[in-house]
Write a protein that binds this DNA or RNA. Structure first.
Lengths: 337, 337
DNA sequence: TTGAAAGCGCTACCAT
DNA sequence: ATGGTAGCGCTTTCAA
């Protein structure tokens, strides 16, 4: 219960109280087996009495393992990455590591800053949601020897490792689903600007799959500015204006799809009879409220857990079979297609 | 560009290359004004050449300021706290601090663990979403002298500081809104279990406001298990079974309200004509899809930014006027009431 | 304006 | 099974 003048109880204080040396206290904490039971109990009592909390930063400085993993996320809002971060954090804590988080707002300059800041903590691993990095960041990262895991995507040449799925294939899968359900003139609605590279990948897969069936006029709209639902609404409007006979729309996100659905309602279009609408992400309410949104489900938590495990493994000397781990995706067919 | 055998360039390496001592390098980093321009440039060149990234943990060990702030969040999923964490992280990084994150899944045992783990980093501040802590955690926290900010609530006796709003008053405000729009027999739907203390506070405010107008039969249901929307649906069903003349339902969250709306639809009840339905949170889609959900909006980002600023200020010696900062809330009237 | 020495709290290494 | 010594990379304090 005693509080030192410095405010923090040190290992030395515990050692003194237990009548042992610092290193014995350290062993009780890190390798209890190497300490005789009686001594161990005495040390543990001292720890409890003093309310001692070991200084991990000091420990890390000596041992050269920070037990910190950094995650650089574009944003938590929109909930795309929220479950991934939950999974990442949970798995790390189970293994005595902690999670350092930074947001980038889809800016690669901020990403570079965040990466540099994290490297200042000498992290045991780094997780990145973006895969478009500044040259500077790439070099710093490569030189640092810190295990890097890029997530939510499977770049052709990952910096270190990758855990995600093929956005391209997901787009293609949705195109095939729409074709299989009888649609012949599907369009794509994405968003312009702000790191929508993943959306573009989905579009490319979508367009390629259509092209294989002879449908080569790539119908697409990508409104900028406004909320995602507003963009979805405008996207559908734009598509219909230019290609009035469009019979299906694949939106790059569920939020966009929601906007498109609402716009369809306003225009008196019946879904899915007059037009099919599909989203991406399978957000929390996609199946609710009579919505029944057809969409693509990504195992977000698993991405986080897998990325964490990968870092843990690599640091334990276990080399993974592959630098890329594909967690896959699933087309969830509901009632809007 | 050179990489030491250890993998990390140290301040000593930079000093050597620039032909100065370590401390001069340190000054260039922390207090550039105290170094002659010529020397400064030479040091900066060396830093760039070597790709030097200062070790913050080592720096913190000396300076006794970690520049880390910890946040213990129940969960990121459900998006309640996502924007708060975004705001917190953004404000911290602007000021050269980093965010350490831990999730608790609404378990106060995990919270205690997380708090202890964070204290191991000697954080410059700690942010907690829960306000029901184990006795152990409270004591450890109080003894640590780390500035603690509890958020999303305004406890009567905060451990350190609090940034949030009155859940009680928010419930009361919604009751008054329902009464003002002509409802006379409103009920409450919450969820059982898992840290729903905040929901209970809303209920209490709700019930008290009704009692003041003579409406004293506290109608409420709190289904457990299942998704939140499923619970909302069952909650409405339970309320209607017991009190068939209920003419309004205030749900403890928007997800619950969504479920209630869907259940109302299934029962052929018109909203708001036959029954008014209100939620809490103003989640992303509350105003979309013709939904027009009446709800309560909480300035989540601002809570995060304010908590960060509070910690920064306290550490800079600025005492805030009050230990509790009320960011308020807003009843958003749409078309379901 | 710059530097030398000491030390932050811990662990690695080598003894005993 | 336990301890002494020497750092980890940085900042503080005091000198020059």
């Amino acid at each position: 219960m005693a509080v030192e003048s410095s405010g923090w109880v040190t290992m030395g204080d515990v050692a003194e109280r237990a009548g042992v040396s610092k290193i014995t206290v350290s062993r009780v904490l890190r390798a209890p087996d190497k300490v005789r039971e009686e001594t161990r109990d005495r040390v543990r009592a001292a720890i409890a009495d003093l309310g001692y909390v070991p200084d991990e930063a000091a420990g890390g400085l000596s041992s050269r393992r920070s037990r910190i993993v950094g995650a650089v996320i574009s944003t938590l809002a929109g909930s795309t990455f929220a479950s991934t971060v939950d999974g990442l954090g949970a798995r790390l804590r189970q293994n005595g590591h902690q999670l350092l988080l930074a947001g980038t707002d889809y800016s690669s300059a901020k990403e570079a800053d965040a990466v540099a800041a994290m490297l200042g903590r000498r992290p045991d691993g780094l997780v990145l949601t973006s895969t478009s990095h500044t040259e500077d960041a790439r070099r710093t990262l490569a030189a640092s020897r810190v295990p890097v895991v890029e997530i939510w995507e499977l770049p052709a040449e990952p910096i270190g490792y990758a855990v995600g799925f093929s956005n391209h294939d997901a787009g293609a899968a949705m195109a095939r689903h729409l074709l299989a359900t009888g649609r012949r003139r599907p369009a794509f609605v994405g968003t312009a600007g702000e790191g929508d590279r993943r959306g573009r990948l989905r579009y490319e897969g979508f367009a390629e799959a259509l092209a294989q069936t002879g449908t080569t006029d790539a119908r697409a709209a990508a409104p900028s500015a406004g909320t995602h639902t507003a963009r979805g609404a405008r996207g559908l409007a734009a598509v219909l204006e230019r290609w009035p006979d469009t019979d299906a729309v694949f939106c790059a996100s569920d939020a966009l799809a929601l906007g498109a659905l609402s716009e369809a309602g306003r225009r008196g279009l019946r879904v899915p009879d007059d037009i099919a609408i599909a989203g991406f992400g399978d957000f929390e309410f996609a199946g609710e409220f009579g919505l029944g949104l057809t969409t693509v489900r990504i195992p977000g938590i698993r991405i986080g857990e897998t990325a964490a495990q990968l870092i843990l493994d690599v640091n334990a000397g276990i080399r993974p079979d592959s630098r890329s781990i594909d967690v896959g995706f699933e087309v969830v067919e509901r009632s809007t297609t």
